[in-house]
Computed example of a mutant assay.
Amino acid sequence: MGPAHPPPQVVKQAIHWLLRLRESGHDPALAQQCEQWRSSHHEHELAWQRVLSLHQDLDLRALPAAGVALRTLETSQRRLHRRQALKLLGGVALVGSAAWLGKDLDALHAWTSDYATGTGERRSFQLPDGSLLQLNTRSAADLAFDQRQRLIRLRQGELMLTCNALQGQGRPLLVETRDALLEGFDGRFVVRQDADCTRVSVSQGKVAIHRPGHGQLQWITSGQAWRLDTQGAQQVEQQAMDASAWAEGLIVTRDMRLADFLAEVGRYRHGYLGCSEAVADLRLSGVFRLEDTDGLLELLPQTLPVRLHQRTRWWVRVERMG
């Protein structure tokens, strides 16, 4: 008799198959591969059926039978975007474990990316041209290298790129974000995509900003940081945080607001982390290790007049002392 619930990693594989089939439209070869995966082990079929059973929660049309590609996640009212579908999937206990889903939700969001990290994870990747790509927490990027260019699309989060102009054999090395197209040359730079802008910091070398409708390139040189949005590009004169320290597992702050600091730490952990308005504008300078965010938070009362109000490990609020 098979298990009551398929293993989490098998459920993730089943969702991955579903998304691949959706994206392919109608690909008989891919559908055949999926069918072979399902029939190779009883846990695979169980996981597949569990995923399909979510159709009522996702408000889907009838899903395909065995061997038929999943053509669409569309209803008569709306088409669910892949990420919206994953959010809905994340709200259902696929394997009877809400904790597992919460932990891996970021990974689910990034499954269709070439490179991705989960919450609190930092990874390094050697690219085909020899460049070094590093991804910070909750980040995802796609790679499109061809005969004309080397393109990295930052879908979410933050990357650091270490590159050499000679590696490309004449092909430009480009990083695309929602706000701009950046060209890297010899050196190292960080690109971060926030909700309202893209931030670029250059540690070594230089980066060119390509903007539609602008005839001339704008240059970011070593030691500079810029903010790019729909209104234009502006140099940031003073930064409250070292933009590249995360690659060494650190947060390095310089007179940073406590509320902003907690928002940054919150990127590396699950659950709620915030503070009261009474302490939001307190300033913080120092070097903090990311490997243990619980321990990091415990340091705050030693340097600021605050206390930690902790309901659970996943709910922490910083309040005024007393």
Rank of each mutant, 00 (worst) to 15 (best):
E23M: 11
V95L: 12
Q231I: 15
D106S: 15
P305F: 02
S24Q: 15
L282Q: 12
L228K: 02
A110T: 00
E43V: 02
P301A: 14
L18V: 06
G187L: 13
L282K: 12
G91Q: 14
A29E: 01
Q32P: 06
A47P: 02
A263E: 02
G130Q: 04
Q310V: 12
V200F: 11
W100E: 14
L46F: 05
H309E: 05
R257F: 06
Q234V: 08
R188I: 04
L89C: 07
T119D: 10
A144M: 10
A247K: 13
R22H: 05
L159Y: 11
R254S: 10
Q77G: 04
Q193W: 09
L101P: 09
A240K: 00
W37L: 00
R71M: 14
H109S: 01
A99V: 12
S139T: 00
Q36T: 08
L127K: 14
R320W: 03
Q235P: 11
A4K: 15
L54I: 03
E264F: 10
T72L: 09
K12L: 07
D196Y: 09
D229M: 10
V68L: 08
V190K: 00
L52F: 07
L154I: 01
H41E: 03
T198D: 09
L18F: 01
L228F: 08
A62R: 15
T312E: 14
H42F: 13
D179W: 05
H42A: 09
L46R: 07
A208F: 04
L217V: 07
L58Y: 06
D229G: 09
S201C: 08
Q84A: 10
G130R: 08
L73W: 03
Q239G: 01
L46W: 00
A29G: 04
G215I: 07
W17R: 06
E23D: 14
D27R: 10
G213K: 02
P212M: 13
P305K: 12
E23V: 15
V68R: 03
G184F: 15
S244E: 13
Q149T: 10
V318N: 06
I220D: 05
Q193N: 09
D255Q: 09
A110N: 00
S39K: 00
Q231E: 14
E237D: 08
D146W: 06
Y268M: 07
R317T: 07
L228G: 01
R283N: 02
H26Y: 12
R254F: 06
P128N: 10
L250V: 12
R50P: 02
R171G: 05
P28G: 02
V191Q: 10
H16C: 12
L133M: 11
E158A: 05
T137N: 07
V306I: 15
R22M: 06
N164R: 12
F189N: 04
L58K: 01
P7M: 14
G118R: 00
E298G: 11
R83G: 05
E319G: 03
R283H: 00
R320K: 01
R82L: 08
A278Q: 03
S24K: 09
D196C: 08
E35Y: 02
A259F: 05
I15K: 08
L161I: 13
L296Q: 13
H5M: 13
Q13R: 09
L135M: 07
E23C: 11
S53D: 08
